[in-house]
Design a protein around this nucleic acid. Structure first.
Length: 413
RNA sequence: GCGAUCGUAGCUCAGUUGGUUAGAGCGCCGGUUUGUGGUACCGGAGGUCGGGGGUUCAAGACCCCUCGAUCGCCCCA
């Protein structure tokens, strides 16, 4: 690369183009279409908030906050942060705009998020997510509807094969706490045999030992206390209602008792749609119920459930998506006919044709260039020995609008 | 924060145990052929081999540093 004086892109950011950009757009368009089927309402939020919004939502202690957020001071000395997730900002908007009046509120949004992380497959510092939330709904049917939306989205994207929904419950606040205590007790007894990382986790985030990849941990994980033995009857009923609803909605799932959330405000349902086709970053869509979040932001107790899905990861799964097919190519094989080519292109485009004109570079090579663009119809405009010559060549015999194109072409002669 | 692998034209890549002036295909630009024809041929532009230092008579190649990319670990809101 002879680029010595050109600034480079920020690490972990990406310039998306061509087939990748088409796949990206396909994911977003499909989401927009499907969320309307479930009557989720569109919302737009700022990409930055007071740091407090995320710090209080995510928890001041975690190194997530201290190390992995893009925070900066504005000119007034206030600490701001580029949003690392949607949920906190949505919760803040819900509280500050009085959206309680719309409860239960089904919201959908999508856009860029920022996390200061080491980039790897399916992980970027600026990445993009789809997001769906139901706020102010305590009933398990909300979880079911949200999961049905996710399930239909993945099916309509054509990525459902090889993606499985893993489902778990974390119980209510009490169940969760007693389970956690039992886990700490269990792992403390074998602490010295755990991996170094998990010995650390035992103090900071014991639930995470359950999804450790280290074989030294895994043999203990198998016999670790399970949430099911600590569920209150209410929590049990709730989870059963969710699974019954999923069955009714025809949403397939797998119970994964090791699926956990690190933050305390998560209650009951936790879920991830996972694939084995994306290396170490297999989660393609994840979420859960976060009944405790609104209070940590100073609002009234408000039940809520939501999920987010990585657009880049989904785009990788949907695979190659070509640009829209070129319907009409117009080659001006002589410079004197360039104005006519422009006139024609204008007519065709106003009639709703996808048109490209070939009027630059070597005049005698424009026809070949047009041909290589693989149009359904190729129009050439030439001037040979002072005589105008032109023609319309139907290259795709199955092109539906061939007659219409011919008529417009004829009327312009 | 840690580890592994990789950086040669716009793109995909060759480049011998270190040995002249660093190559190919595609793309781009121009020319010749063809003249309803995705042709074929000829020519051209474009590289301080990511950057810096070192070893050597000689470095794209070997060593060190650095920057970047990719993948993994940690983390995963």
């Amino acid at each position: 690369m002879a680029i010595t004086n050109t600034p480079q892109a920020i690490r972990g950011t990406q310039d998306i183009f061509g087939a990748d950009a088409e796949a990206f757009a396909f994911v977003v368009e499909t989401f927009e279409r499907v969320r309307k089927l479930y009557r989720f309402r569109r919302a737009e939020m700022p990409v930055f908030e007071k740091t407090e919004v995320f710090a209080r939502s995510i928890g001041e202690t975690t190194d997530v906050v201290s190390k992995e957020m893009y925070s900066f001071e504005d000119r007034g000395g206030e600490s701001l942060t580029l949003r690392p997730e949607f949920t906190a900002g949505i919760a803040r908007a819900y509280l500050t705009n009085g959206w309680q009046q719309h409860a239960p509120l089904k919201l959908a949004t999508h856009g860029p998020l920022f996390r200061y992380e080491r980039p790897q497959k399916g992980r970027y510092r600026q990445f993009h997510q789809l997001d769906a939330e139901i706020i102010g709904a305590a009933e398990p049917q909300a979880d079911v509807e949200l999961l049905a939306l996710a399930d239909q989205l993945l099916k309509e994207l054509g990525v459902a094969d090889g993606v499985t929904l893993q489902l778990n419950t974390l119980g209510d606040a009490d169940s969760r706490e007693t389970w956690r205590a039992a886990l700490v007790g269990y792992f403390r007894d074998v602490q010295s045999q755990l991996s170094e990382d998990s010995q650390e986790r035992l103090e900071k985030n014991p639930l995470r030992i359950l999804d450790s990849k280290d074989p030294r941990d895994r043999k203990f994980v198998a016999d670790a206390p399970q949430i099911d033995d600590f569920l209150s009857s209410e929590a049990q009923d709730f989870f059963e209602a969710v699974t019954a609803g999923l069955d009714a909605a025809g949403v397939a799932y797998e119970r994964n008792k090791a699926l956990v959330r690190g933050l305390d405000y998560y209650r009951h349902t936790a879920f991830e749609f996972v694939t084995d086709r994306l290396g170490a970053q297999g989660t393609v869509l994840g979420g859960g119920r976060y009944d405790g979040l609104m209070e940590s932001l100073g609002g009234p107790a408000t039940p809520a459930v939501g999920w987010a899905a990585g657009i880049e990861r989904l785009a990788m799964l949907v695979g190659e998506r070509g640009d829209d097919r070129l319907e009409l190519a117009i080659a001006a094989e002589h410079d004197q006919r360039i104005p006519e080519a422009i006139v024609l292109a204008t007519q065709f485009r106003r009639a709703g044709f996808k048109v490209e004109i070939f009027i630059s570079g070597s005049a005698r090579k424009r026809y070949d260039k047009a041909r290589r663009a693989e149009p359904a119809v190729l129009i050439s405009l030439d001037l040979r020995e002072g005589v105008r010559a032109h023609g319309l060549n139907l290259l795709d015999q199955h092109f539906e609008r061939a007659g219409e194109a011919q008529a417009i072409f004829d009327s312009c002669q």
